[in-house]
C-alpha cells in the first residue's frame, strides 16, 4: 500500500521536475515580454534530441548536452527576434498563435534533421534501481530531480541577487521605467527566451533516458509546463515550480490509481479547473491580460 503510493510519488516527482522547469520557462518569458511561448516544449525536444543523437555519434555526454543547450538558446533568441519582436504590438492571442506557429515550424525542421523515430540515450549512471522503503527508483530519476533542483535554485539566486536578474524583473514590473534607467528592454526579452530555452533543453537532456527522444516529445511536455505555470500563477516563478510538481504527482497518482489511459487527462482537468475557478492560479495576483 504505502510502497505503491511512494512509487507513484517518486515517478510523479521525477516528471514533475521537468514540468517545473518548463513552467519556469513559461513564467520567465511571460514576465519579460507578456508572451505565452508555446514553443517552450520544442526547447525540451531540442535538448533531448541533440543529446541523444550527438552521443550516438560519439560526442561525450556533457559536450552533447552543452551543444543541445546552446542550440536551443540560439533557437530561442531567433524565435524572439524574428517571430515575437516583430509583432510587438500584436494582441495576446496573435502572439500565442505566432509561438504555436514557431513550434510547428521547429518540429518540422527537427523531423527533417533527425527523422521521425525514437532516439535512445543511455542513463547517465546505470540502470540498477535504487530501493527506497519498498519503492524502486531509477538512478536517472535522481539525475532529473537533482538537476532540476540545482537549476531552480540557481534561477532563484539569479533573480534575487544579480543586477541582471533584477533588471529582468524590473522590466516585467515597469517597462517604461526600465527603459528610463537604461535597461535595453529588447535585450531583456531575448535574454529571457535564451534562459528559458536553456532550462528546457537541459531538462530534455536529463529526462531523455526515461522518456526516449522524438520530435514530438515537446508537445505534451510543453502543455504540461504551461499547466504548471498557470496553476502556479502565470509569471510567478516559485508558483510554476510548485505547479509542476503538483501536476506531475497528480498525473502519477491518476495513472496509478485510476488508469494510465487518463494520465494526460489529469493535466487538462487541472488547467480547465484553474482557468474556470481561479484564473490567477495558486500564487499569482495579476490577471493574464497583457499590460
Amino acid at each position: 500500500m504505502f510502497a505503491e503510493l511512494l512509487q507513484y510519488l517518486l515517478s510523479g516527482l521525477t516528471i514533475g521536475a521537468i514540468y517545473a522547469l518548463a513552467g519556469l520557462g513559461f513564467s520567465i518569458i511571460y514576465n519579460a515580454s507578456h508572451v505565452i511561448n508555446f514553443a517552450q516544449g520544442e526547447f525540451i525536444m531540442i535538448g533531448g534530441m541533440a543529446s541523444a543523437t550527438l552521443t550516438a555519434s560519439g560526442v561525450p555526454l556533457p559536450l552533447a548536452i552543452m551543444i543541445g543547450c546552446g542550440g536551443a538558446m540560439l533557437v530561442g533568441v531567433l524565435v524572439a527576434k524574428f517571430a515575437v519582436e516583430r509583432a510587438r504590438n500584436a494582441s495576446t492571442v496573435t502572439l500565442i498563435i505566432i509561438t504555436i506557429g514557431a513550434s510547428i515550424f521547429l518540429r518540422g525542421i527537427a523531423e527533417l534533421v533527425w527523422g521521425k523515430d525514437f532516439k535512445r540515450l543511455d542513463a547517465f549512471s546505470g540502470e540498477t534501481p535504487i530501493q527506497i522503503l519498498g519503492a524502486s527508483m531509477q538512478p536517472q530519476s535522481l539525475w532529473v530531480v537533482g538537476t532540476a533542483g540545482v537549476l531552480i535554485v540557481a534561477i532563484g539566486l539569479f533573480f534575487a541577487r544579480t543586477l541582471t536578474g533584477k533588471a529582468i524583473l524590473a522590466t516585467s514590473h515597469n517597462r517604461l521605467a526600465a527603459q528610463l534607467v537604461g535597461i535595453d528592454v529588447k535585450r531583456v526579452v531575448l535574454a529571457s527566451f535564451a534562459l528559458s530555452a536553456a532550462l528546457g533543453a537541459i531538462g530534455g537532456a536529463v529526462v531523455a533516458p526515461i522518456t526516449f527522444s522524438y520530435t514530438e516529445m515537446g508537445i505534451m511536455l510543453g502543455l504540461k509546463g504551461f499547466t504548471a505555470a498557470v496553476l502556479g500563477g502565470l509569471g510567478h516563478g516559485p508558483g510554476a515550480v510548485a505547479g509542476g510538481l503538483i501536476v506531475g504527482i497528480a498525473e502519477a497518482l491518476g495513472a496509478g490509481y485510476i488508469s494510465s489511459a487518463y494520465k494526460d487527462a489529469v493535466a487538462f482537468v487541472i488547467i480547465l479547473a484553474v482557468l474556470l475557478f481561479m484564473p490567477n492560479g495558486l500564487f499569482g495576483k495579476r490577471g493574464t491580460e497583457r499590460v
Partner: peptide
C-alpha cells in the same frame, strides 16, 4: 524622473536605487 514616479513597485527601495545605476 517620469510623471507618476513609475517605481519598480514590488522591488525593494534599495533595488530601485541600484537599478538606477544600471548603466
Amino acid at each position: 524622473v517620469p510623471e507618476g514616479r513609475q517605481l519598480f513597485g514590488p522591488q525593494s527601495v534599495e533595488d530601485n536605487l541600484r537599478l538606477g545605476a544600471y548603466r
